[in-house]
Design a protein around this nucleic acid. Sequence first.
DNA 1: AAATCGGGGTT
DNA 2: AACCCAGATTT
Length: 351
Amino acid sequence: MQKSPLHPFSATIMAWYAKHQRELPWRQTKDPYAIWLSEIILQQTRVAQGLPYFDRLITAFPTVRDLAEAPEASLLRLWQGLGYYSRARNLQKAAQMVMRDFKGSFPPTYDEIILLPGVGPYTAAAIASFAFNEAKAVVDGNVYRVLSRVFAIETDIASSAARGVFTSLAQSLIPSQDPATFNQAIMEFGALQCTPAPDCSDCPLRVSCEALSLGRVAELPFKSKKTKVKEIEMNYLVIEQKGQVLVRERTEKGIWKGLWEFYLIENSTEWLPFQRRALKSPPVHLLSHRKIHCEAWHVQVPDNFTLEIPEGYSWMSPSDFESKGKPVLLLNLISDNLDCPILQDISPTYL
DNA sequence: AAATCGGGGTT
DNA sequence: AACCCAGATTT
């Protein structure tokens, strides 16, 4: 098989990477399980935010078997605060698939890896190249930015055609002899040098970058659609009786599936016939597509009263509730009201 | 093709 | 306030 010559772009970024790469724990290993775990954590998540979660999860679940056999609740508790919780649920489904369908050994090819739930074209290429040296080019936000600028590509990265355009280009640039380093290099280059608002004065590609010579660095990559934010209201009642609190798991589709919460009233006012005390409202909670206004009250139900438990809810001790994964909104509600004894009992011991 | 799914850092 | 982050899945 004939070797194709190394493209100048590839040579430049790989030389740059040799000098500027960060030391990250998932770069110290060839274990596909550890690499996979890191890639799922890093989906739409900055390295700095994901790092402590990687340490925590690889310690709690050192092997794919440990992850497959863990209670889902404990996984979601460890994932608490990281967001996109379907990643955690798919992570465990995939671990169980590796145990069952691949007899416990991680599948070694892109075509098999992409069959795992939660693994799409980016993550499959990352694992296949990093762990198994398969020459599949990764295309993530960094790659869109670097390639659109260096080669002055005006394709709308929000369009469905964009992935194909950039994947073809990246695949033509990746060297078959060291695909892993190329993939690491182009992403690290996008993260550290070719940033959204870059300093091009010390860029090793400044003489060949087409966007720079065209004066279009700030305009690339081009992205059309912007997300619209919907404002919603969430009212929580911390209903307490005999030292327990009324809670439920969010099982319906939508945000925070698999996480736990207090008695929720959305966009309406219905009241229990008991004395209630207003709690301090947590700050307005901003998600990428939601703006959540929250108010909360503490309700003390007399011991001798038998409360009709609403569908889906149950009584739980504060320590059991502490062990469940909760949205950051609720963590803020709890930490802002530590003068309320039962909330103090629920207050997490870490994070 | 467009919407959905979190939370946090940068500018 | 807008944009982005080692994107994937559902509608």
